[in-house]
């Protein structure tokens, strides 16, 4: 099996994630799509580490996981707060800055 297939998978996952961010309204789903994109990037990093035969990509993948964990903490807190005050988790409803 060619190593390029991992990259294809990574691209497909990333695209699914991006499309999900753009088309879904539910903030939780959008969030999950973002996670999907981050993990698609991780997969790509690991693949490149394999191709180049060093550990740089794998190290970066760990960093990404840390960043993703922080992001989940902050992001979920925001979503829950918004849900509490506005009784909705739709991203389109949170458009107050426009006005």
């Amino acid at each position: 099996m060619s190593i390029a297939n991992y990259l294809y998978l990574s691209a497909i996952l990333f695209t699914i994630g991006a499309v999900g961010v753009v088309v879904r309204r539910n903030a939780i789903v959008v969030f999950m799509c973002i996670e999907l994109m981050l993990n698609a990037a991780n997969l790509a990093f690991v693949t490149f580490a394999r191709i180049n035969g060093n550990l740089d990509g794998q190290v970066v993948a760990f960093f990404t996981m840390v960043v993703a964990a922080c992001e989940v903490v902050v992001g979920l807190a925001i979503i829950v707060t918004i849900y509490r005050s506005r009784r909705s988790a739709s991203v389109d409803d949170a458009s107050l800055l426009k006005r």
Binding site: V21, D92, S95, K98
Partner: peptide
């Protein structure tokens, strides 16, 4: 373009 919808900002970014 400044319509306040997060999704359209995301689309623009993409």
């Amino acid at each position: 373009f400044q319509n306040g919808y997060v999704r359209s900002y995301a689309l623009m970014m993409v």
